[in-house]
Design a protein around this nucleic acid. Structure first.
Lengths: 348, 348
DNA sequence: TGACAGAATTGGAACGTTCCAAATATTTAG
DNA sequence: CTAAATATTTGGAACGTTCCAATTCTGTCA
């Protein structure tokens, strides 16, 4: 409808002051007289003025957009939605606004999205990188003085801060728990071997096996896509081994669900016939049947820590690369066989 | 590190052409000679040039940022994550980038993020409004020629396009299904009465009751917060009625889960002792015990439709307010008592 | 060769803001 | 009442881009 947009000059004219004064008001400067300020504000409201951030950033050397970019690799995974909410909490109370984008694991899309955010002058970036992201991809950002914090998946070689969960310790406790339940042959199922997270979790598995006084067997490590389908595939391979495992720690919860599916397809009941432990503690884990024993990683917490780190760097002006690992904890439910199903317990 | 940012003038100087030519290259104009073009591109890559969208938008009357803003009211609800993914699919293939923000049902936060998006010159906005959003809130946007599409929750009175699921028809089929199973007293549980969605679903409930030849009883409609806790509360009230219901359709799946919790707390098993039907078909619905019978609304589909509508309006230049309702379908699982638990069926 | 068309290039002048130095108004002190 | 100090306001000049009108190249044709 309205043809031309309302500028600071229009406001100035209407309020009978200069554009400089209006600008001062805009920035909440203490230089301007209280009466003038309220008059200007009134006129702005009346004319429906919208601040043109682009023009402002143009002039201001250090583009202070008050926008935090968040890029995740899979929004349909509630883990990342939770993470984004965690980021939002701290970002919001610091007076920033969060813009979130999803890459669906596409490196190309990630490049586009990050470029777009950069063009819009974000103050900082929190990213859970798509698979096989090149560590150098974020070099230009940090070179331009835009702080970057990598979360969930670390990016070895990149000189950026990162917040990752303690994958190693989580796997150790999962394996130890299964060992305590009497399992001797424990498999490690799922995940792509080319990722840092996989390496960490596998390392935790090995430590756990050793700590329990068991032997490490190469054939018990079966990688696959980190998805439900991948879990089905992995358990399929595990079950035909000469010396079958009786339990498995899985790369993540999705794989664990797939493993349960695969077991059922073979008339085996997860929990009682074969112990399954997941990793992540996604929201579905507790509602599933059997409820999934898994390593809980608190995605919101990661988001909050990441955001705090980022804000610190934004305020400091200079970005000291820093790595923080957040603690995890094993939550024991039914799929490991330690507890009977609640349904059976309370049912008639 | 690098002090000054690289501008088109730097590029021009380094490439031995004028800034105008560089600008032409940037826009992919056919006017510029092929040789010049590649040389300029090479220099840009070499100097690490980043396009300054702000400056460009400043000059271009119609701010073509190629950004679609998406605002949702609850990102932790996987329903909205799915919706965002649906939007992203179509927005992406049209060469746009999506920026997502979460309001957590806060009207103030919604105002902030929408304002922020506007300042950054989004090309269009898709919003699932926070509860109690004023229809007038989006007036300035459309007045400024920025198309707005409201999804999921309609905003009566606002002159904007909207995409909502067929709440009425969904409820009708839910009630009819329960009636076919022989239920005579069917309750409607949960939801806040002051919302358009509530009205639609309640209207569907009434039609369904009538269509089944049953009587409508005021006391069987029990509102509550549309959450798990609200469901517990609602079933608590329903169960103490003189003439108890034997089945319930719920405002949404969260309420339905709460109703199941409440039933169990009273030693009643959802499915066999009391039939419950949800609405939305959130991801947890099929993994729950018992698996939830519910009305599936395909959030991705809503997202896609909404995005298509928005893009149409962006391209058309003018926004004809238009309403589309997407179809829904009842998916019958266990909680309505129509089917036995899969576990029992296939188990020994 | 000169004129002419078309292709390719190019200097400003915007766009809406902030910043600076300088101007003006208002107090305060003497 | 005046000078000095303080509080407030104000014209440009940027910022990095696009657009327009104008200019400079290339050939081409008579």
């Amino acid at each position: 409808m309205t043809k031309a947009r309302v500028t600071v000059i229009d406001i100035a004219k209407a309020a009978g002051v200069s554009k400089s004064t209006v600008s001062l008001v805009l920035q909440g400067s203490s230089l301007v007289n209280e009466g003038t300020r309220s008059k200007v504000n009134a006129v702005m409201r009346e004319l429906g003025y919208v601040y043109n951030r682009g023009a402002a950033n143009l002039r201001q050397a250090s583009a202070k957009s008050r926008i935090i970019g968040v890029v995740v690799n899979d929004l349909t995974n509630s883990f990342f939605a939770e993470l984004a909410v965690g980021v939002d909490m701290v970002v919001q109370s610091a007076g920033f606004v969060q813009f979130l984008s999803n890459t669906s694991e596409s490196i190309d899309r990630q490049r586009e999205v990050v470029a777009s955010m950069r063009e819009h002058g974000i103050s900082g970036l929190i990213v859970s990188p798509a698979r096989a992201t090149d560590a150098a991809d974020f070099k230009p950002l940090v070179a331009a003085g835009i702080p970057v914090v990598v979360v969930v998946r670390s990016l070895p070689g990149a000189k950026v801060s990162s917040v990752v969960s303690d994958n190693r310790a989580g796997m150790v406790s999962a394996v130890e728990h299964l060992a305590e339940l009497g399992h001797k042959r424990i498999a490690f199922l799922g995940g792509f071997p080319d990722t840092a997270v996989f390496d960490d979790r596998l390392a935790g598995y090995r430590s756990g096996i050793e700590a329990a006084g068991l032997d490490y067997h190469q054939e018990l490590v079966i990688s696959s896509a980190p998805s439900r389908a991948g879990g089905v595939e992995a358990i399929g391979k595990a079950i035909v081994l000469a010396d079958k495992p009786t339990a498995a720690v899985c790369f993540n919860d999705a794989v664990a669900f797939g493993v349960c599916d695969g077991l059922r397809a073979r008339r085996l009941e997860p929990g009682s016939d074969f112990a399954v432990v997941g990793f992540d503690d996604v929201i579905e884990a507790q509602a599933a049947v059997p409820a999934l024993t898994t390593v809980s990683v608190d995605p919101q917490g990661i988001g909050r820590r990441g955001a705090q780190l980022l804000l610190k760097q934004i305020n400091a002006g200079k970005a000291e690369a820093e790595t923080v690992t957040t603690s995890v904890r094993l939550v024991v439910r039914e799929s490991c066989g330690a507890r009977k199903s609640v349904k059976i317990e309370t049912g008639l």
